[in-house]
Computed example of a mutant assay.
Amino acid sequence: MKIAIVTDSTAYLSNEEVLASNIHVLPLSVIFGQETYLECIDLGYQDFYNKMRTSDIFPTSSQPAFGYVLETFENLAKDYDAIISIHLSSKISGSYQTACTIADELKDIIPIYPIDSGISCAPQAQVVRLTKQLADLDYTPEEILPLCQRLLDDTHDYFVVDDLNNLQRGGRLSAGAAMIGSMLKIKPVLTFVDKEIVVYEKIRTQSKAMKRIDTIVSDTITDQGQNFEASIIHANCPEKALKWKETLQKEFPLLEIKIEQFGPVIGTHLGEGALGLGWAPKLENYR
């Protein structure tokens, strides 16, 4: 069975990986007033953060257009036997719901299997990579989906933002929580629960919040990290990300740690200076 693998741009896969793995990416958009940009196509990482810092307009984001997704799936139906599409959390974007609607529309043409990752960024990318690996090993969609869910269940994802106002203005955090947090200079540790961004714990400084995440890592990783892999994700603060990696690597010398970035759409909600850490068992554990 020939399976097409589709994902949102919020997985932030490199162009090299997308081309090498033949992954089909649905770009989300960032909007500054009347200007709309396809993330990572019309507006790259650095250009986005520069524009957000200097613009008087607060950016918003938008899911891929229904017509674009429909056309993409119809074209894939010409060359593939099935489609698995991996999307960022349905509580952040409507892209998963769009895929479900189109799956129903095209059910007599090609089977489509949408996955709501419940997360985004590097952890979402890991689900894409697992799907690709399993498809290459001739797993069927019915075999792939529960293994992807196992990976999602095993994934830990925590982050801390430098400014709560972005989350509040983007509708991802209540105005009251943002105001109190800003007044008290709180840098809360955030995570995903039931596909929503929630406050895990309230911390007074970003460095203390990062140390709290380190303790969560210690509680969940064994054997110095030999069987795990992690990603530090940053919003235009690579020096902080590198320093965090060095700290983690001392405690977990066998843990594979990558440094990734929050792209424009997720950066719209988290703001510049945000840092995140996601980790899970290595993908080889799911074959």
Rank of each mutant, 00 (worst) to 15 (best):
D8G: 08
S9D: 08
L19N: 09
I23K: 01
S29G: 09
F32Q: 06
G33C: 00
Q34L: 10
T36P: 01
E39M: 07
E39C: 06
C40E: 10
L43P: 00
G44R: 02
M52P: 04
R53M: 12
I57H: 05
S62A: 14
G67H: 09
E74L: 14
K78G: 09
D79M: 03
I83T: 02
S85R: 04
S93Q: 04
G94M: 04
C100L: 11
D108H: 15
A122L: 03
Q124W: 03
Q124K: 07
A125Y: 00
Q126P: 05
V128W: 00
K132N: 10
Q133W: 10
L137W: 00
T140F: 05
P141L: 03
L145S: 01
L151Y: 01
L152R: 05
T155K: 04
F159D: 07
R172I: 15
A175G: 10
G181V: 07
S182T: 13
L184W: 00
K187M: 11
K187I: 11
P188D: 01
F192E: 06
F192W: 04
V193L: 14
V193G: 12
D194N: 14
K195Y: 05
V198S: 02
Y200I: 02
S207K: 13
S207N: 14
K208V: 10
M210W: 02
K211Y: 09
R212F: 08
I213H: 03
D214T: 14
V217E: 01
V217W: 00
G225E: 05
Q226P: 00
F228I: 04
S231T: 10
H234E: 15
H234F: 07
N236L: 06
K243A: 13
W244K: 08
E246Q: 14
E246M: 09
K250G: 05
K250T: 13
P253I: 08
Q261A: 10
G263S: 05
V265A: 12
G271P: 06
E272R: 15
G278P: 05
G278T: 15
G278I: 06
W279H: 07
A280Y: 13
P281A: 03
P281K: 00
K282W: 02
E284S: 15
